[in-house]
Design a protein around this nucleic acid. Structure first.
Lengths: 223, 223
DNA sequence: AGGGTTTTGTAAGCTAGCTGACATTTTAAG
DNA sequence: CTTAAAATGTCAGCTAGCTTACAAAACCCT
């Protein structure tokens, strides 16, 4: 499957960086959250977009049965709540801080719309960001439609490599420090928790990966 | 599950209608296609958005194994290729005319960007259209993650009702004239063709629906 | 009008992956 | 340091839905 990650095209933080972009001051207000604080919740009015300065933020929602489903865990430089720009009325997900002193910068949609009108480059960045999200959704959908659990897990690990991976020159392995539990992974790729566990241990037995609670070491390129 | 269809918010055709919107003339060029003609193909450069004036257009892609997968079949008033606006470089799907003399209006991305900058109402409509597509994707994903095939099929029928349904006042039934084969439905909801067939016939036995090749009659509200 | 093609109907057999249950290990909280 | 809670590991049993295969029907096309 084609490579998905054009992060340079999508790094809104870079272009919003105050050193490079003066108008940024207009939306330069930061909020600090503590673990378990909700930054927004389902049904909240969608009036802002957020940028993470520090810490971690979990995006998710609750099923009718009350189970939490994780959509993503984001870090410094990541943007969330961007659907507000697209005229979304209310949130259909929550955003929750995970780490102590998680700092996010919030930007009002009205301000962003003005910025976008005045700055072609900026608006294109925003467009690309949204296109990126759509591609990610379409990709997940295709995996779910056509691939078995093992393949989906391996694709997911590949994504983790691209997002969180640190390549070790010496050994040629990639170390992933990620924030997901096996339960999270299970719901992200659409399977049950025991199945994830079994396959993870299979991959370990096959010397493809090594892992503990917080880290995965990818020993060989899987694709 | 919540109701998804805010078509009024999303009907770009209305706002692009020449009677209401003078600048529309700028992009008022129509093309006529015949069945099996491709309007665009995977890997084509994404430089236009399209609006269907007449006929039907199939959106789909091919798997690595060469099988065709239908993403949607669209009709008069529907928009496609809108990812071009979001800075997509090349198509990851094809668009193919299905009916004789299918007429589509094409609009260059550059023109659309200009229109969007000059006209706040228009740009919001475009944003809402894109938000709508994202919601649809997210919804499909959630169904695929958590619901069994029967539920997914019933949700799909509900969508067809909203999109293609004509309500008969006398009998209280809804008639759906749709363009999908059972094979198409199968790939849309992520199952096999025989399974769709079996469940469709079960629903018929339960007097919930009536159907033939081209039409589905929904006898009772299923949700 | 007839022969080929596509779509629909149906069934047997199999298996990937779910469910539920429990044990073990790790982390968090007082 | 202790205890509770969360995350991981493992397994037996089951079943939804897939695969394959074939037959019937409906729809071309010339």
């Amino acid at each position: 499957m084609e490579h998905l990650w054009y992060l340079d095209d999508v790094n809104v933080f870079k272009i919003l960086c105050p050193h490079k972009f003066k108008s940024y001051k207009a939306c330069h207000n930061f909020d600090v959250f503590q673990p378990r604080d909700y930054i927004y919740f389902e049904k909240d009015h969608s009036c802002k977009m957020f940028l993470i300065e520090k810490g971690k933020v979990k995006i998710g929602y609750y099923t009718a049965e009350g189970d939490e489903v994780v959509k993503a865990v984001l870090r410094k430089g990541d943007v969330f709540g961007e659907k507000a720009i697209l005229g979304e009325e209310e949130r259909n997900e929550f955003a929750q801080a995970l780490l102590k002193d998680t700092v996010v910068c919030s930007m009002k949609v009205s301000v962003l719309h003005d910025l976008m009108r005045d700055n072609k480059t900026f608006s294109l960045k925003i467009y690309k960001l949204i296109n990126f999200r759509i591609r990610k959704l379409e990709r997940r959908l295709q995996l779910l439609l056509f691939k078995d659990v093992r393949t989906r897990l391996m694709e997911f690990l590949q994504e983790l490599c691209d997002e969180y991976g640190v390549c070790c020159e010496k050994t040629g392995t990639v170390k992933i420090s990620h924030p997901y539990t096996q339960k999270d992974m299970a719901s992200l790729i659409g399977t049950s928790r025991p199945t994830i566990n079994t396959i993870m241990n299979e991959l370990r037995d096959e010397n493809l990966i090594e892992f503990n609670r917080n880290e995965i070491l990818v020993l060989k390129k899987t694709s």
